[in-house]
């Protein structure tokens, strides 16, 4: 069964589970920028949470089914168009051979996932599935999926019809609240400066990281830092005074002060931030952050038992 990419949009990537446990070798996490949205898209087709799917960002994407196929399209998009008719995104779509699916540009959020029953098979010689473009690793020859790409799937028979229960429906807007916990150099910053105003995502925004524009912040204290580990969710403080939030493709080590860290329950939201989105940071204690993480995992695992957040 195959799906053809008629219009690839700006940044469509094959993504699946991240590359866990290799940061000491310089390997970034990669994988879905919003693993929650991908897990729900996969659920709609009966797939495991981290089955290989397409991640799209910003622009409209158009696909054509070359066989009867069940797809789940979820994330920033609220509706999808199949042969011009609009359908809610929160349900399984059964495409017939020749059907055209259009995912409109997102009103809120940034990324939508296209899951295909059985998962998308890796393309090319690479065994890895998640795309990390700087190393041309994984996915579709390690690059952005091009116009005309034909994606193979391994589904045998059509999935059952599913609709996401009310408690599991995402609704991403343009205003985000990200909860943060302390990082090693948090004490160097007057944290009120970060917490008191909305930050706006700047034009420098990709899977590696996002600029948090607003009033430049000042450090109360500064000294040389030896390069050490950074992670998706680390908020760095470069000399410009404009904080930089690291995303899933972020490098593994860095030498800028680490002023805060987005909590694990909220890190998947980084994948839904795009230029112009507003972010309000809210500080929580580490124990509370752990509780929030555990309750989010427990909720999603009622639907997707193998769901993970990193």
């Amino acid at each position: 069964m195959t799906l053809e990419v008629i219009e690839p949009g700006l940044l469509t990537l094959v993504q699946a589970a991240p590359y866990r446990g290799a940061r000491h070798l310089g390997m970034p996490l990669a994988g879905a920028a919003d693993p929650l949205a991908m897990a729900l898209a996969n659920w709609l087709t009966g797939n495991a949470a981290e089955a290989t799917a397409l991640e799209t960002a910003y622009a409209p994407v158009v696909l054509k089914a070359h066989s009867d196929i069940a797809v789940g399209i979820y994330g920033a998009a609220i509706e999808v168009e199949i042969n011009i008719a609009a359908f809610s995104a929160a349900q399984t779509h059964f495409l017939r051979r020749g059907d055209i699916v259009r995912i409109p540009p997102p009103v809120g959020g940034c990324r939508t996932y296209i899951a295909v029953q059985g998962g998308i098979s890796p393309h090319g010689v690479l065994k890895a599935t998640s795309t990390y473009t700087p190393a041309r690793l994984g996915g579709y020859d390690g690059t952005i999926v091009p116009k005309g790409a034909v994606l193979e799937t391994s589904a045998q028979q059509l999935a059952e019809q599913r609709s996401l229960p009310a408690g599991y429906q995402l609704c991403y807007g343009r205003d985000f609240r990200l909860r943060i916990a302390p990082a090693p150099e948090s004490a160097w910053l007057d944290m009120d400066g970060l917490l008191d105003e909305d930050r706006v995502i700047g034009r420098r925004a990709d899977r590696i990281g996002l600029e948090l524009e607003g009033t430049p912040l000042k450090l109360l204290h500064n000294e040389h830092i030896d390069s050490g580990a950074v992670f998706p969710g680390t908020i760095q403080f470069p000399p410009s005074g404009i904080p930089f939030l690291l995303g899933p493709d972020a490098q593994t080590t860095g030498g800028y002060p680490r002023i805060a860290h987005v909590i694990r329950a909220d890190r998947h939201l980084i994948g839904q931030l795009r230029p112009g989105a507003r972010v309000r940071f809210q500080r929580v204690e580490p124990a509370e952050a752990q509780r929030l993480y555990r309750s989010k995992i427990a909720l999603i695992r009622q639907l997707q038992p193998d769901f993970r957040l990193d």
Binding site: R20, G21, R23, H24, D226, S227, G228, A229, F231, T252, T253, R264, P286, A287, Q290, Y293, R294, I297, D310
Partner: peptide, 28 residues
């Protein structure tokens, strides 16, 4: 640390060691 299998990531910096763990497996 890596051989213990307890940690998700074990990263050596120039002058520090950083580990990441899953709070589902261990409390703080």
């Amino acid at each position: 640390f890596r051989q213990s299998g307890l940690w998700e990531e074990v990263v050596q910096g120039i002058a520090d060691l950083t580990v990441k763990y899953d709070p589902l497996n261990m409390s703080d």
